[in-house]
Design a protein around this nucleic acid. Sequence first.
DNA 1: AATTCCAGAGAACAGTTGTTAACTGCATGG
DNA 2: CCATGCAGTTAACAACTGTTCTCTGGAATT
Lengths: 209, 209
Amino acid sequence: MSHTLGIRQAQKQKTRQALQDAALQLLEEQSLSSLGLREVTRAVGVAPTAFYRHFRSTADLGVALVEEALGSLHPMIRTTVSTAGDSAERIERAVELIARHVDAYPAHVRFIARERHGGVQPVREAIRDQLARFAEEVRAELAKDPVSAGWSDDDLLMLAHLYVDQMLSTASLFLETLDAPEDERARVAGLARRRLRLISLGRLHWNGG
Amino acid sequence: MSHTLGIRQAQKQKTRQALQDAALQLLEEQSLSSLGLREVTRAVGVAPTAFYRHFRSTADLGVALVEEALGSLHPMIRTTVSTAGDSAERIERAVELIARHVDAYPAHVRFIARERHGGVQPVREAIRDQLARFAEEVRAELAKDPVSAGWSDDDLLMLAHLYVDQMLSTASLFLETLDAPEDERARVAGLARRRLRLISLGRLHWNGG
DNA sequence: AATTCCAGAGAACAGTTGTTAACTGCATGG
DNA sequence: CCATGCAGTTAACAACTGTTCTCTGGAATT
């Protein structure tokens, strides 16, 4: 049960969220590695020292952003690779879902793509861990599919990671088409579908390592 | 013919290279977006203002690093996807070549992986352009293979980009095993081989869009 | 109603940054 | 041999950074 927060805790969470939102916006044109604590507080309109009430450092802020950006994605994953429908339908559904997600949370997608290999170790690790959880869920979902008969767990995990990577790569491509003409977005969608189709073909003919 | 540089030009190129080397080393623990000009000159042991004799800004330095890191890779690409040998041999050769490259130029690999989606636009664009050139060369090489009969140029380019992405992804994985035990490296190599094998299987059964 | 707690403000700190200007010494070309 | 060019130096600038300490006002607790 969710206990209603006091005025005090509520206000604190509000400022904290404001800091995260401001950071996410500032990170459109730079990396977390160069994000300054004062820069963030200035954008929110709060004293620099208030930052420490919420985060130890900007790296700590970054880890919180990873949770925000990826934590809410887990339920979506399951429906994305759900075994319902034939292969073409599933691919179409997945690409569509990715496109919508990029539209809804472009800053989140940019942040993850940028910091996955970025210059701040704790953030890299947080992203790696979350993506590993994703891959594990995808693997579990793939295992339900009769196509996966004869597959080792290791091979299934390999395939799951391949799908997760494709998801991120596709999201990153969609990100670049956000302020591009519609036909450019359609081209990316077509490209993503063909890539998934090729991987699915390889999956169908997998001989088992 | 290569005209011998004067003492002057030679010394200039030497410091320029020193700046690039120092930057590359400093970028192991941060992103280009936070790399300071003074930081670089201090590491080289040269006055901050000397920087301007070589680069307009650190972003400019970054673009030069892209050339250095990726420019020399083109000849290697051709042999990597050359049509010699059967599928398993080609995959083995490719993974081996990537592993050796990561061993030889870890800082280069880290830089490209980090800045491909990094916070400095000109650098992102430079990397994107170079990778597009790679993909184009891979496409040309793939086109020679009889397996590619019936493939459209567009589909071949899609496959080529898939291979290039795999190359980068694998290199990034090898990078993380640089100070890890040998069996960890072997595990990554095996993973990379299986991923390439799955893609190659998809390629063999491609029905043509 | 009195007391404690704590998110945020304010001021000050030493250290850093990019950029400008005027300079020096040495390799170069006439 | 002398004049020019130019890589690198020195000094100084305003602006910015993260962090510490002290303080305040109002919510939370008793």
